[in-house]
Amino acid sequence: MDKKHIKALRKIVGEDNVYDDKAHMIAYSYDATRTRYEPDAVVFPRHEEDVSAILRYCNDNHIVITPRGAGSGFTGGALPANGGIVLGFEKHMNKILEIDMDNMVAVVQPGVINMDLQKAAEAVGLFYPPDPAGQDYTPLGGNVAENAGGMRASKYGITKDYVMALRAVLPNGDLIRAGKKTIKDVAGYNIAGILVASEGTLAVITEMTLKLISKPKL
């Protein structure tokens, strides 16, 4: 990648959020399959506006983007097979924005670890059922992008059954909102459902509204 692109990306997100050194290229080159493709840079957006600016710049300059969770999947979704940049959300976009006890939903950023949401929900008597094998370290953005399941799936369902709404950025940098915070949302196309399991190929998810249920007594 031309150094002018590295400079432009650092102007968008700051010097400390763009890396093109060998150590980072190796660290972000593989997933659970151990297949390796090194990116040209790793970028950590600070917020949704950064994601939009990054995608707009990369779209204009024909730079490939690969959103990444923990790199724990076996599908290749996190592999930068064509180089370009890897987007990492663990550094900044890792916050639980809201747990709405009245409506029984959580609003989270993509870098929130699955187990952290489970603990936060259970602390107020609620429950988030999806429990993939890597629940202690996999982020919810990756869970949604891969439609993760888990041991509780046979009783409670999988990730797609708990996604109520999403905010995401399209390849051209435009922001979209899909779904609603309410259970009854029958108007229009199910865009949120299309983005679930899309592995970052359609848009970059920046915020998720997830359904919670009452905490089981046992």
Rank of each mutant, 00 (worst) to 15 (best):
K155L: 14
L55R: 02
L97M: 11
E49T: 08
L175S: 15
R68S: 00
G150D: 01
G73W: 01
M164Y: 09
I194R: 01
K3R: 08
M93A: 07
L212Y: 02
G150Q: 13
R10D: 12
A106W: 00
A153L: 05
G134W: 10
Q118L: 04
N190Q: 12
S52E: 03
K184M: 10
E98S: 11
R56E: 15
Y57H: 03
I85T: 14
P67R: 04
E49R: 15
E48W: 08
S214Y: 05
I96N: 05
Y57N: 04
L166Y: 12
G84H: 09
A178G: 02
F127M: 12
P139L: 06
P39S: 09
M25R: 14
A133T: 08
P171C: 09
N17T: 02
V112H: 14
D185G: 08
D16P: 00
A168S: 15
L79V: 02
K184G: 10
A120P: 00
S29R: 01
D2H: 14
Y137K: 02
K155I: 08
L218D: 14
K181N: 09
D185W: 06
A8Y: 09
P67D: 03
D20T: 13
Y30V: 02
G149D: 07
R46S: 13
G200I: 10
A148Y: 01
G73A: 07
L166K: 02
Q118C: 11
I54D: 10
G142N: 09
E98V: 05
A153H: 04
A78F: 02
A27N: 12
V51R: 12
G173V: 02
K217G: 11
I63E: 03
I12S: 11
G149A: 15
L87E: 02
S72K: 01
I113V: 15
V112M: 11
D131H: 07
S52V: 01
A168L: 11
M164D: 02
A165P: 01
L210F: 00
A120Q: 11
I158C: 09
G149E: 06
A81P: 05
I65L: 03
R167Y: 02
A27Y: 10
G157W: 10
N94T: 00
R68L: 06
M115D: 10
